[in-house]
Structure formats: C-alpha cells, structure tokens
C-alpha cells in the first residue's frame, strides 16, 4: 500500500515539474531608481533639483504589490501572493522574477504601490511583509507604503533632513496607489523610478516631514505614483 502511494506521489511530482518547466519562465522585472538621468546613489551623491537646490537621498524603499500584465486592457497574467519590498540599498530587491508563461505577450504592467487594506489588518506576516523590516508603524498599526529620506539645503530642519513615510489604509486616508504603465519590451521588463519627478513636485521648505496617514500622505503618494515608466532603450 505504502509503495503504491509513493509511486503516485513521485509520478505527480515529476509530472508537475515537467509541465511547469515547459510552460513557465522567470521573466525579470527590474526596477532602476534614478534621479533624472543618473542612476540613484544613496547618501554620498549630491543631486540638483530643477530649482537648483542640492539634495541627497539616504533611504528609498517602497512596496510593490499585486503585479499583473495586461494586453489590450485585459489582464493576461497575475502574480499570486504578490508583495515585494523594493529597497534602493539592496540590489537583489530591485530585481523580481515573475513566473509567467513563456509565450506571453502584453503591452502594459499594472501594480499597486503599497499594501492593500485587507493585508493591513491580517496580522503578522513573513518575508517582505515582516513588520520588523522597518516598513511598519509601531505606534499605530499599518504598513508604510513608501519611505523616502534625505537632506536638502531647502529644509530648515535638523541636519536639513526631509522624511517621508507615506501610508495609511483606512478610509478616508487610504494611500494605496494603482500604477499602470505601457510596456514595449516583453522579454525583460525594465522600470525606471525617477525620484527627481517626485521631489520637484513638492516644496521642501514647507513640506519636509510627513510620517502619519492623512491628507498630505494621500497627496504625496499620488505624486509618487507618477515616477514609474518603462526604461527607454
């Protein structure tokens, strides 16, 4: 009896592995943090904003979730359990492997920036969602969707620092952003995140510290959602 069961299990395992290997592949989804045309370098590199201010970026992290690929406006592939913490300081985190069918054509990618409200109230989770990754508020439950920290002479704060911890999942301050961008390259998806675009949309003199959910966090999250685009070859 035992050997019978074992045979069946082995048979099925081989079968699924073979099937899987034939039809799915690891399609690379690459995020490239940039400041304007330059690759983003944390802490040391000084950048100039469109208003000629000097700026340094110390931390850039965000959640990308619910990734889907679309063709003619229809979803043709959707990642299961799709939660990724993108961290400029960790190269590996910028390179995602999407297990998609080999033969798949699509003209757009869609994802959320941040963590949805259901996941926000579902208790402790592991991996990229582990609340000890520094992307979770401890004094009031909720994921931090986006963390951007740096320095600029525009900020009349201690160490000229600016700190944006953007998030919030509760009505009316749900800061989750849906992003959809068109894609031409299908083998490998390259997405630029241009921090300059975000920074130039705000006045760092008056707005340099947002660390709670609310109106400002909603507004800035929306600004942030515009920084994604396909890398121009």
């Amino acid at each position: 009896m035992k050997s019978g069961i074992a045979t069946i299990i082995v048979f099925f395992t081989i079968n699924t592995v073979v099937l899987f290997a034939q039809t799915t592949s690891n399609r690379i989804l690459n995020f490239q943090p940039k400041f304007g045309n330059e690759d983003l370098q944390l802490i040391e590199a000084v950048y100039t904003t469109k208003n000629n201010d000097s700026i340094w970026i110390d931390v850039f992290k965000c959640y990308v979730s619910n990734i889907a690929l679309l063709q003619n406006g229809k979803v043709v592939w959707q990642e299961k359990n799709s939660f990724h913490l993108i961290n400029s300081a960790e190269q590996e985190s910028l390179r995602l492997m999407l297990q998609t069918p080999v033969a798949l054509t699509f003209d757009a990618i869609q994802f959320n920036v941040g963590i949805d409200s259901v996941t926000n109230v579902s208790g402790a989770m592991g991996g990229d969602l582990d609340p000890t990754n520094g992307m979770y508020w401890t004094w009031q439950s909720g994921y931090i969707n986006i963390k951007l920290e740096g320095r600029s002479n525009k900020c009349l704060t201690r160490n000229n620092a600016f700190t944006f911890h953007l998030g919030g999942y509760q009505f009316p301050y749900n800061a989750l952003q849906k992003v959809m961008i068109s894609i031409q390259q299908n083998e490998k998806i390259n997405i630029v995140t241009d921090i300059q675009k975000f920074i130039s949309s705000i006045d760092l003199t008056t707005q340099n510290q947002i660390m709670t959910p609310g109106k400002s966090a909603m507004f800035l999250s929306n600004q942030f959602s515009t920084i994604f685009s396909e890398l121009k070859q």
Partner: peptide, 25 residues
Amino acid sequence: GAINHLDMQSLFPITHPDEMGEQLD
C-alpha cells in the same frame, strides 16, 4: 484602537521610548 490586530500589539511597547525603548532589529 490604534492597534488593528493582536499580532501587532507587541510592536508598540517594544519600540515606545517610554515603555521598552528598543529597536526591533
């Protein structure tokens, strides 16, 4: 009601400067 789930409760006292004042990592 600042904490939305029992799992998440411990984060508050551990990191609060007037309670346990620790860093999670």
